[in-house]
């Protein structure tokens, strides 16, 4: 699809044509290359250094443990990018995950067949997405505020559904769905990696991915160019809700229980991962592979600190400083490029 900018002047120059659905034309520059791959290179250097220093890093099991521990955060971080690319927030994803887990677990405990319970859980995600879309896209409420409201309401709903209790006794099928291993790696990690590829494909190889970037960069310009801005934004909220509810099903399998109080613990880390990811590969833009690379860089760094015997506060400082540095870098890069997403 192509669009023209309507800028009539006295001399009526020919309209500018720009096919924003096409991949960007690339002119190689070392500066750009370094900027794009610095974080990935940093990850590689850190891993090599850790392999040299720590014997534990020479075992596959440590890598399995690291990626497994970050699976839920990665899934949520990737989901967060769906809305972040559009210049909005969806803070409700973590609590949608927990509420979905609570509904599915409770229904299964009540004897509802698992497929029906799963459908009910996915339906919750769609409903949350629709409500968020209604508030943000249709009514125009600020996305941060609207989805913070959703988050809080879903938190209460989770307590209501579970009667403020931890629900255990999740059927083995759910546990196997998340924890069974393929090539020594838990399935939940594979789901995250598959989502990375799907989102990379959508973001980089489809017109829809270009539209989201365009909308995030300048919503009014996108609208004037004929992009169905509201439809795409509403659809993105529904997709975000649906993905979050899918993660909720993974969540109950992963832990084998639902604790209604943990939603808040998953609220900020996915966004940290997404913002960090915007500093890599497609610099200044929320992207799937960047999110993975950034999250794993942090994980390797924190694991190394833990192996060195660092206290918990050291890890927190490392995480926080890395986030500040990375987001600042993304902001600068995004400003330089224009149309960037990381704000």
């Amino acid at each position: 699809m192509s669009a023209s900018t309507a800028t009539p002047t006295a001399t009526n120059p020919p309209p500018l044509k720009h096919d924003f659905t096409a991949p960007p034309k690339s002119q190689f520059s070392w500066a750009g290359f370094t900027e794009r791959w610095a974080l990935v290179g940093g990850l590689a250097v850190l891993v090599i250094a850790c392999i040299i220093i720590f014997p534990q890093f020479r075992t596959a099991s440590l890598f399995t443990t690291m990626v497994n521990a970050q699976s839920l955060v990665l899934l949520l971080g990737l989901t967060a990018t769906v809305i972040l690319r559009l210049g909005d927030f969806d803070l409700s994803i973590a609590q949608t995950m927990v509420a979905t887990g609570a509904i599915v677990a409770q229904l299964v405990k009540l004897g509802v067949p698992a497929p029906l319970a799963i459908l009910a859980g996915l339906a919750l995600g769609v409903i949350v997405g629709l409500i968020n879309a209604l508030l943000v896209v249709r009514i125009g409420v600020d996305s941060f505020v609207a989805t913070l409201g959703s988050f809080t309401a879903l938190s209460g709903l989770s307590y209501l559904i579970t009667n403020s209790r931890i629900i255990s006794g999740i059927p083995d099928g759910f546990v196997d769905f998340a924890r069974s291993q393929l090539l020594g790696i838990p399935l939940i990690t594979w789901y995250a990696w598959i989502l990375v590829i799907v989102l990379w494909y959508v973001y980089q190889r489809t017109p829809l991915g270009r539209y989201t970037l365009f909308i995030g960069g300048n919503r009014n310009a996108a609208r004037l160019s004929g992009v169905p801005v509201n439809r795409i934004r509403a659809g993105a909220y529904i997709v975000s809700g649906l993905l979050a509810s899918f993660i909720g099903i993974c969540f109950i399998g992963y832990f084998g229980a639902v604790d209604p109080s943990v939603g808040g613990q998953y609220m900020l880390q996915p966004f940290a991962a997404a913002f960090l990811g915007a500093t890599a590969i497609s610099v200044g833009r929320f992207n799937a592979f960047g999110t993975v690379a950034a999250l794993y860089l942090l994980t390797v760094g924190i694991t190394a600190l833990q192996l060195l015997g660092a206290q918990t506060w050291v890890s927190n400082v490392f995480y926080g400083v890395a986030l500040m540095v990375a987001v600042t870098a993304a902001k600068i890069a995004g400003s330089r490029r224009g149309g960037g997403q990381a704000k």
Binding site: Q56, T59, S61, T65, F255, Y266, Q269, T312
Partner: peptide
């Protein structure tokens, strides 16, 4: 393992996983 009480669910995964490898 002194875990961060505000992020128990994620911190346990990280710290315990490393400890079991160590």
């Amino acid at each position: 393992l002194n875990v961060d009480v505000a992020n128990v669910s994620t911190d346990i995964g990280s710290q315990l996983g490393t400890a079991l490898q160590k």
